[in-house]
């Protein structure tokens, strides 16, 4: 006697239904608040000239080698990757007239999906709300890579002892607390803050407290409402990251619709809330596991009875 394929599928379906029934029963977890001292970046596409000084500065600040995969002559990463934490991309419309640069790096979410996905806390939302990485804890599971809705964490595929690579807002450079400057932005001393913002020749990317940056972004939109765009063409202008995916500490202003910059439309719900709802729901009241193992036990019991206790017979004959 072997497993009856039909009964096996039936029992799985029953278990799945039991599990699914528990979804939504658990309460949503407490949404993490934005830390009061959260630091952030504000990138404005209307100011960026695509000089890539930030890309070079990022490499130097983080000790990353130039990416010469494309050609040995140039440092030309095709995207964020295992040696690139920050990259300038170019959006070009089909007719070529509408163009915009786009600075890709970690968004430093208020409620990061990668942190939620990380089993052992290698990634964490740490000082100043920066999402940082502790390589000594990392097991290399790459769940963070799957979890991130912005496709940011990257894996060192070419390394024998690979680690995850993502922008950590140069947290390793910070030696002393940030100070509010005469321009109203709170920043780290020169050489201690995010390298990209420090070197930008046009202040297309600036650093500061997230609250200050959000106010600045809104001020820019109010001053030049015709200059900026919303998520879709025709939407009223808005700051990307204010509420998207529960809010991010990296904010974007764009003169082309934000969707064209490859920023995903995530709504206001943080990704971990969905993740946690499912994961916690599975184990709510331990109903899910009990139901699953009960069904499995039932299947074993049935099969043993039908097989007459002939335990020597190989069950795999018709698999």
């Amino acid at each position: 006697m072997s497993f009856d394929r039909r009964s096996l599928l039936k029992s799985f379906a029953a278990a799945g239904a039991a599990v699914a029934a528990t979804e939504g029963m658990s309460e949503a977890r407490v949404r993490p608040e934005l830390p009061a001292d959260a630091m952030g970046l504000l990138y404005d596409t209307t100011l960026c000239i695509g000089c890539k000084t930030c890309v070079v500065a990022c490499r130097e600040a983080n000790g990353k080698k130039p990416d010469t995969t494309y050609s040995p002559l140039w440092d030309a990463p095709s995207d964020l990757n295992g040696q690139t934490k920050n990259v300038i991309k170019l959006y070009k419309s089909a007719d070529g007239y509408e163009r915009s640069y786009f600075k890709a790096q970690c968004m430093h979410c208020v409620d990061p999906a990668c942190v939620n996905a990380c089993m052992i806390g290698a990634l964490g939302k740490r000082e100043y709300g920066m999402v940082t990485y502790k390589p000594e804890l990392c097991s290399g599971c790459r769940y963070c890579q799957m979890a991130c809705p912005f496709n940011v964490p990257k894996f060192e595929w070419t390394s024998l002892a690979p680690l995850m690579v993502k922008c950590e807002m140069c947290a390793h450079r910070a030696k002393s607390a940030p100070v509010t400057g005469p321009d109203g932005f709170t920043r780290f001393a020169k050489g201690q803050g995010a390298a990209c913002a420090e070197v930008c020749p046009r202040a297309a990317v600036i650093s500061g407290r997230r609250t200050e940056l959000l106010a600045e972004a809104k001020r820019r939109i109010a001053a030049h409402p015709d200059r900026y765009k919303g998520y879709h063409e025709g939407d009223s202008p808005r700051v990307f990251g204010e509420v998207d995916a529960g809010g991010t500490q990296v904010l974007y202003l764009s003169h082309v619709p934000l969707e064209k910059l490859g920023l995903p439309d995530l709504g206001t719900r943080a990704v971990p809330e969905t993740q946690q709802t499912i994961q916690q729901g599975l184990y709510k009241g331990f109903i899910g596991p009990v139901a699953l193992y009960g069904l499995l036990g039932l299947a074993v019991f049935r099969n043993r009875r039908a097989g007459g206790g002939d335990s020597n017979k190989t069950p795999g004959g018709e698999a």
Partner: peptide
């Protein structure tokens, strides 16, 4: 070889 490669005058597209 280039001792210290720097970025070229090209950009990766939004969707690599």
């Amino acid at each position: 070889d280039i001792e210290r490669p720097t970025p070229p005058d090209t950009y990766p597209p939004i969707h690599a």
